[in-house]
Every structure is written in C-alpha cells, then in structure tokens.
Amino acid sequence: MLIIRHADARGQADLGWLRSQHSFSFAQYYDPRHMGVSALRVINEDHVKPGCGFETHSHQNMEIISYVLAGTLAHQDSYGHKRTLSAGEFQLMSAGSGIYHSEFNPSPNQPLDFLQIWVKPAVQGGKASYQQRFFESTNGLTAIVTPDGRESTLTIKQDTSLYRLQLTQGQNYTLPIHAGRILYMHIVQGNLQIADQLIQDGDGITIKDESSVPCLAQSNMEALLFDLPA
C-alpha cells in the first residue's frame, strides 16, 4: 500500500520571520487524518529569515532531528551545547526528561532552510543529549540515524532508522521492506517514480504491506527514508 501526501496539501504557517510547511499536524495546523506515521510525529520544512530564529523554549520526551538544507543554523541549549550547523549537517537532540534550547539563523543576509523532524522515543525520561554530524553525499542509501549508532550514525532512542537516498536521473533503485515495518519517504528535492506514482519536492509517501517497491529517478533527487515499527 502506498499513501501519498502531496507537498501542496501540507499545513502552512507564515510568521513573517518564518515560513513553514507541516507534513503532519503541528502548532496551529491540525488535521486528524495526518497526525504522523508510527513513531514519526513531525516533519516541518522551515525557512528562516536572516538574523531570526526560535527563542529559547523547552522540549521533553522527544527525539528531535534537524537537517540543514541551505544556510547556517546556530544551536544553544541548557546543557551547555553551543554549535553551528552548515548545509548537509544533521543534528539529533534527545530531549529526555527536559531541555531548553534555541535555534537561530546567525547570517545577516542569507536565509536558512532546514527540516525539523520529531520522533517519539521508545522510553520516556532520562538525561538529554546532543549529537551532530556531516554525512558525505553518496549515491544510493546512506544510514544517518539508527537505534544502535552503527557505522558512526547518530543514535536514537527508538526502533527507527533514518536514511538519506540520493539517485541520479535515470537510476533504478528497489526499496526493501521487512515484515512488521513501515517506510515513510520525504522528498527533499527532485522527482521520483515509485511504483506507478510520481512524487516530487516536499511530497511524502507511506509504504506498508509491501515486500519491495521499485523506484526510478526522473531527475537527480534526494529523499529522507524512515524505517519505522508497524
């Protein structure tokens, strides 16, 4: 079964300093049909104006992943982490029993585009933690986040893995799906034919009750692929 969530159907927010598209219900956008997939709760595509950002606020019991697409993201939190992320870098903050943080675009003239992703943890509480890594651009599937931190991936407190899929135009790829799992794909850029469906920038697709799904890149493309418990 393939369920497509087209980009233009996402929730929209425009606060002046921030434009955001919400794949799932978030803040003032609520749609009971789109509350997340398995443990995946939030995918927001955020566009932040120069010199602006999210003031200090709190989180708890959530695994929060940020992926910088363009510009620079400045992070600061109550555990003393002060970090800067550039395009191509991933950040994973485990909120645990509680953490305060802020996220800003420190550039005076360049916009910041990033994906904000929330995953519900398997266990609640515990100490908050912070991880950050740049992953080289590689054709095919690259593991980014895993439950066991294998191959120097970021470690998440959930039975969930995140991969980056990068294909060149005309390239075929088959997505394997293991029993008892759900795949969710978010297209970062480009066009992908998956089975007989065409998905493109900002689209999302839930894949379940399939053993494998054929894909064909209609352009150079990049996607995030979540392997989730059913």
Rank of each mutant, 00 (worst) to 15 (best):
H22Q: 14
A195C: 08
T153R: 04
S161E: 11
V48T: 09
D77F: 08
R5S: 13
L18V: 10
F90R: 01
V145R: 00
W17D: 07
Q171H: 11
F90T: 03
L92N: 12
F104A: 03
R181S: 08
L15M: 13
L192I: 13
F135H: 09
K49D: 14
E45Q: 15
T155I: 10
P121V: 05
F226T: 06
P121Q: 06
I187M: 15
R164M: 11
I156P: 03
E210S: 08
H6V: 05
L18C: 10
M62A: 12
S38G: 15
Y100N: 12
E55K: 08
N61R: 04
R5D: 15
L154R: 11
Q189W: 04
I199D: 08
S137K: 15
T206Q: 14
H34P: 01
G11F: 15
M221G: 00
G88P: 09
F114K: 00
R33V: 00
H22C: 08
E103C: 06
H178P: 00
T153Y: 03
I117W: 01
D31V: 06
L198C: 06
W118E: 04
I117P: 10
I187L: 11
M1A: 15
D14H: 11
R33H: 12
E103L: 04
T174C: 11
L141E: 14
A74T: 10
L162I: 14
A223Y: 05
V188W: 02
G149E: 07
I177L: 15
R164G: 04
P121M: 05
M221V: 03
T155A: 10
E136F: 09
A87F: 10
D227K: 09
R33I: 00
G126N: 00
N191T: 06
T72K: 15
Y67H: 14
